[in-house]
Computed example of a mutant assay.
Amino acid sequence: MYLDHIVHHITKKPLETAEDWKAKGLHAVVGGRHTHWGTYNALLYTKISYIEWLALEHEEVANHANHPLVDLLLHDLKTGPGFGTICIRTTTIDELCKQLEEKGIETSGVLHAERKTTSGLVRKWKMLFVKEEVSDALPTPFFIEWQESDEERYRLLREDGTIEASNLELTISSCEFHVHNPREVMDKWQGYFGMKEHDGRTLLLSNTQLVFKQLETGTKERLASIYISGSDKEEDIIYEQAVYRFR
Results as ranks from 00 to 15, higher is better:
residue 44 L to W: 01
residue 96 L to F: 04
residue 72 L to C: 01
residue 50 Y to T: 02
residue 87 C to W: 02
residue 76 D to P: 03
residue 47 K to T: 03
residue 86 I to W: 03
residue 43 L to M: 12
residue 74 L to K: 15
residue 49 S to H: 00
residue 65 A to W: 08
residue 52 E to K: 01
residue 94 D to M: 05
residue 85 T to S: 11
residue 65 A to E: 09
residue 86 I to H: 01
residue 42 A to E: 04
residue 54 L to H: 03
residue 65 A to Y: 08
residue 95 E to H: 11
residue 46 T to M: 07
residue 54 L to R: 03
residue 69 L to V: 12
residue 53 W to N: 03
residue 38 G to L: 11
residue 89 R to Y: 10
residue 58 H to P: 01
residue 71 D to A: 14
residue 76 D to H: 13
residue 49 S to M: 01
residue 83 F to M: 10
residue 65 A to M: 12
residue 91 T to G: 11
residue 59 E to A: 10
residue 73 L to A: 03
residue 45 Y to L: 02
residue 78 K to W: 06
residue 63 N to Y: 12
residue 74 L to G: 09
residue 51 I to E: 00
residue 61 V to F: 08
residue 96 L to D: 05
residue 64 H to A: 14
residue 67 H to V: 11
residue 65 A to L: 06
residue 51 I to G: 00
residue 74 L to Q: 10
residue 44 L to A: 04
residue 61 V to R: 15
residue 43 L to D: 01
residue 75 H to N: 09
residue 80 G to N: 10
residue 76 D to S: 11
residue 60 E to R: 11
residue 38 G to N: 07
residue 57 E to H: 12
residue 57 E to I: 11
residue 81 P to Y: 08
residue 49 S to I: 00
residue 91 T to E: 15
residue 40 Y to I: 03
residue 67 H to C: 04
residue 78 K to Q: 15
residue 88 I to D: 03
residue 48 I to P: 00
residue 42 A to G: 14
residue 69 L to A: 13
residue 39 T to A: 09
residue 42 A to F: 05
residue 90 T to P: 09
residue 79 T to R: 13
residue 75 H to C: 05
residue 67 H to R: 07
residue 72 L to E: 07
residue 61 V to M: 14
residue 81 P to R: 04
residue 66 N to Y: 14
residue 65 A to H: 10
residue 43 L to Y: 05
residue 90 T to Y: 08
residue 51 I to P: 01
residue 52 E to Y: 02
residue 88 I to C: 02
residue 87 C to D: 05
residue 71 D to T: 13
residue 65 A to V: 09
residue 76 D to W: 11
residue 45 Y to V: 02
residue 54 L to M: 13
residue 59 E to F: 08
residue 84 G to S: 15
residue 51 I to L: 15
residue 90 T to D: 05
residue 77 L to R: 09
residue 45 Y to Q: 00
residue 48 I to Y: 06
residue 77 L to Y: 10
residue 88 I to V: 13
residue 47 K to D: 07
residue 77 L to S: 05
residue 59 E to H: 08
residue 58 H to C: 02
residue 57 E to P: 01
residue 75 H to V: 09
residue 82 G to N: 08
residue 50 Y to F: 14
residue 39 T to D: 10
residue 80 G to C: 04
residue 87 C to V: 15
